[in-house]
Amino acid sequence: MSDNLINIENLTFGYGKELLHKGINMEFQRGKVSAIMGGSGSGKTTILKLIGGQIQPKSGSVSIDGQVVHNQNLSGIYKLRRKMGMLFQHGALFTDLSVYENVAFPMREHTDLPENIIKDLVLMKLNAVGLRGAYKLMPTELSGGMARRVALARAIALDPDIIMYDEPFAGLDPISMAVICDLIRTLNDALGATSIIVTHDVAETFSFADYIYFVADGIVAAEGSPKQLMASKLPFVKQFIHSEKDGPVPFHVSAPSYNSDLAL
């Protein structure tokens, strides 16, 4: 058994002719919290979708525990997905179901557990995210941070080996952010899972991630532990970490010269 749960090798992917990823290599270690960082539109979320088998790569491979995701048929992919939990950007709670039913949903779909056991499990999961008291509410009655936590409880409902987080901090107030940070770390360690976080929030991610990948221009621009990256001299990493407005990532979208556009 290798130390890496997920291996991404030479992955390329793109919509149409344009390539979004131009040969990405990543390894995610068992039991660790890894982060994928990069600017908006750099294809971070797409990597999660590729791991989940929701889209097909152009070339290269994604393998989980030695199994190549895209060589599986649909039922094989579904089998792999049962080992994964994913937290979507805005939670993606089922709006027609209550908080309780949302968390119970994966259990009802994939197990034949009797109702009283499901109830215990749901309340346990909700307790882990501190929302046991809110089980009767509908998703529309929750704040953004609470919805995210319920979605997290749903993602871990079946005790997955891999937990993926798509922008878990986007649009949250500082308190909720700190709560989510703490939850990601503790849940990862308590479940013995492997977590992958896609984000662009530097301070939060650096505070608790084990390993960080920087994605830019379709390749892994830099990687390492938070400490190594803080010390990094790479201009892109420096620009990103210290949020400078101009640098290797230009402020302006590539365009014809300003003068010619203004017809001067």
């Binding site: 989940g52 929701q54 579904y78 089998k79 997905r81 049962r82 994964m84 994913m86 979507f88 950007q89 805005h90 993606a92 709670l93 089922f94 709006t95 027609d96 949903f105 994966p106 779909e109 994939h110 979605a151």
Partner: peptide
């Protein structure tokens, strides 16, 4: 409207990721 919104809020995607068709 319901299906469209479920798609827009990634509910369908989330379901797929939970291995539910």
């Amino acid at each position: 409207a319901e299906i469209g919104l479920m798609k827009a809020t990634e509910q369908l995607s989330a379901m797929e990721m939970m291995a539910v068709n």
